[in-house]
Amino acid sequence: MSQTILYARVSTSDQTLEHQKTQAEAAGFKIDHVVSDKGISGISTMLRERPEGRRLFDMLRTGDTLVVRWVDRLGRNYQDVTDCIREFMRKGVVIRTVINGLTFDGATKDPMQEAVRDALIAFMAAMAQSQAEAAKEAQKAGIAAAKEREPESYLGRKPSYDRDGLVAVLELLGKGAGASEIAKATGLSRQTVLRIKADPAKADGVLRAWEAKAA
């Protein structure tokens, strides 16, 4: 008996399995099984490399229908998506999308229809990858702009000591001087001296980050 399987990939906190299932049912699909991968990138992790993605290849049989919200749930890597869809079609599986209600199957033998189908698959897979790449570039640009506007959000608060001050604190600590004595000698607050004493490596790292920004 043929079955209808929904494959859902949930990669971010604003996506849910339930939402994808509800969308599919609202579109008229009667789902027999749900297979889902959570917290997995569709760019770097191929469908066969995902725990439930591997299971999907074992479950699907001739006559089955694979439902996905859109092809980007299968992945955002052009080669992987096109290869997987073609493999499923060769097995006699029908792939259907909730968005736009598209259907891909291997039943047709007419070369023109095959060409149109394959071109559409290629276009959708390419769009999925390009959208992911564009989003990644936009995110990088946004982070860079935010760093420029509000460096403290990313580097932490600018340290009250410079390189000479840090060296002086560490030298005095090495000689056994107390925090109050060092604060008086360097002009730094006692709290700053105590933070440096607690984690000299972190104090150096914060200073290096700010020095790199100023370079």
Score class of each variant (00 low, 15 high):
Gln3Leu: 10
Ala8Ser: 12
Val10Asn: 08
Ser11Asn: 04
Ser13Ile: 01
Gln15Met: 09
Leu17Ser: 01
Glu18Trp: 00
Glu18Gln: 14
His19Ser: 14
Lys21Ile: 10
Thr22Leu: 13
Gln23Asn: 10
Gln23Arg: 13
Gln23Met: 15
Glu25His: 02
Gly28Gln: 04
Ser36Thr: 12
Ile40Asp: 03
Ser41Tyr: 03
Met46Asp: 10
Glu49Met: 08
Glu52Ala: 14
Glu52Tyr: 00
Gly53Trp: 04
Gly53Asp: 04
Arg54Trp: 02
Phe57Gly: 05
Met59Lys: 14
Leu60Ser: 10
Leu60Trp: 06
Leu60Asn: 07
Thr62His: 13
Gly63Thr: 05
Asp64Trp: 05
Asp64Gly: 05
Asp64Arg: 05
Thr65Asn: 08
Thr65Cys: 09
Val67Ala: 05
Val68Pro: 02
Val68Tyr: 04
Arg69Tyr: 12
Arg69Met: 10
Trp70Thr: 04
Val71Tyr: 01
Val71Met: 13
Asp72Lys: 02
Arg76Val: 02
Tyr78Phe: 15
Tyr78Leu: 14
Val81Gln: 09
Arg86Gln: 15
Arg86Val: 02
Glu87Thr: 10
Glu87Phe: 08
Glu87Tyr: 11
Glu87Ser: 11
Glu87Gly: 09
Arg90Cys: 03
Lys91Pro: 00
Gly92Met: 06
Val93Ser: 06
Val94Thr: 15
Ile95Val: 15
Val98Gly: 04
Thr108Glu: 13
Glu114Thr: 08
Glu114Lys: 12
Ala115Cys: 07
Val116Pro: 00
Arg117Pro: 00
Arg117Val: 00
Asp118Cys: 01
Ala119Asn: 02
Leu120Ser: 03
Ile121Asp: 04
Ala122Val: 01
Ala122His: 06
Ala122Thr: 14
Phe123Gln: 14
Phe123Tyr: 12
Ala125Lys: 04
Ala126Asp: 09
Met127Phe: 11
Ala132His: 02
Ala134Trp: 00
Gln139Ala: 13
Gly142Ile: 01
Gly142Cys: 01
Ala144Gln: 06
Ala145Gly: 00
Glu148Arg: 11
Glu148Ile: 01
Arg149Glu: 10
Arg149His: 07
Glu150Arg: 14
Pro151Met: 10
Glu152Asn: 11
Ser153Arg: 15
Ser153Trp: 02
Tyr154Thr: 05
Leu155Glu: 05
Leu155Thr: 03
Ser160Tyr: 06
Ser160Trp: 03
Ser160Ala: 15
Tyr161Lys: 08
Arg163His: 12
Ala168Met: 10
Val169His: 05
Glu171Cys: 01
Leu172Gln: 15
Lys175Tyr: 03
Gly176Asp: 04
Ala177Pro: 00
Gly178Ala: 09
Gly178Pro: 09
Ser180Lys: 14
Ala183Ile: 06
Ala183Pro: 06
Lys184Gly: 11
Ala185Arg: 15
Thr186Asp: 12
Leu188Met: 14
Leu188Pro: 07
Arg190Met: 08
Gln191Phe: 07
Arg195Lys: 13
Arg195Leu: 07
Ile196Ser: 03
Lys197Ala: 10
Ala198Pro: 00
Lys202Leu: 15
Lys202Tyr: 08
Lys202Arg: 15
Ala203Asp: 02
Glu211Asn: 07
Ala212Leu: 11
